[in-house]
Amino acid sequence: MADVDPLVVDDRDLMRLLDTVFTEYSYDFRQYAHASLKRRVTQAITRLGFADCESLRQGMRASGTVFTQLLRFLTVHVSDMFRDADYFRAFREQVVPALATYPSTKLWVAGCSNGEEVYSLAIILREERLLERTTIYATDIDPECLMAAEAGLYPIDRIALFSENYIRSGGQTSLSDYYTTGYGNAVFDKTLRQNVVFADHSLATDTVFAEVHAVSCRNVLIYFNADLQKHALKLFDDAIVRRGFLGLGSRETLRFSDHARTYAEIPGGQRWYRKL
């Protein structure tokens, strides 16, 4: 191994690393898409100042802090509020009216990252007067992300983009109705998260926790390999009520999955699917 470029992570190194992550920290990345993981591990090795993959592994084994740092690299947390405005418009116009027929509804945001999507959905639900009746489960595998999501605090320079997206998604007022600014940050109205349960949940290892009326899981499946994608979709399918909804990222699709026939894509719905 000494002869090769230490920054080139091969499959064997990666698997060893992931096995260790799993046995030591119970995070299961073994079924994530390897191409992407390799890039991120390479990045982690450089940034965290390790010589190669093996030393990173040893370091991580020895110290939980190293793992926490590594975890930030292994997972990709990036999103904007109302990102892909059409998706949220479809949610407002197509999904919400159907959800309104239930006396109370549950929504699962799987892979909630730093909470941008959660707040986006909550704002729409508030505007459609459904938020009081809704419980949102916001789950992610990274506890730090969950904390960030729960805080609802975003740098003020991102808010401009959020506002643009909000308008394009069919927002009814101004996004500024929902946040207050100070010290270079914008903090979102905490009543928006009154009915939000932030919880640590892994699509790879954990099971269904509740029956939900809609699942929104965007840009999460892209990091999974085919088996894990299948497993995650099965979880969603188990959780979603009959005639419930599933929303995916712009590059994700049910078309080639086992569920292609049991879900119908909402026309013009921008990756919103409805269970048949």
Partner: peptide, 11 residues
């Protein structure tokens, strides 16, 4: 590949 591309973009 589209997914992979998206993943790279995200990264």
């Amino acid at each position: 590949q589209a997914e992979e591309l998206q993943a790279q973009q995200e990264e």
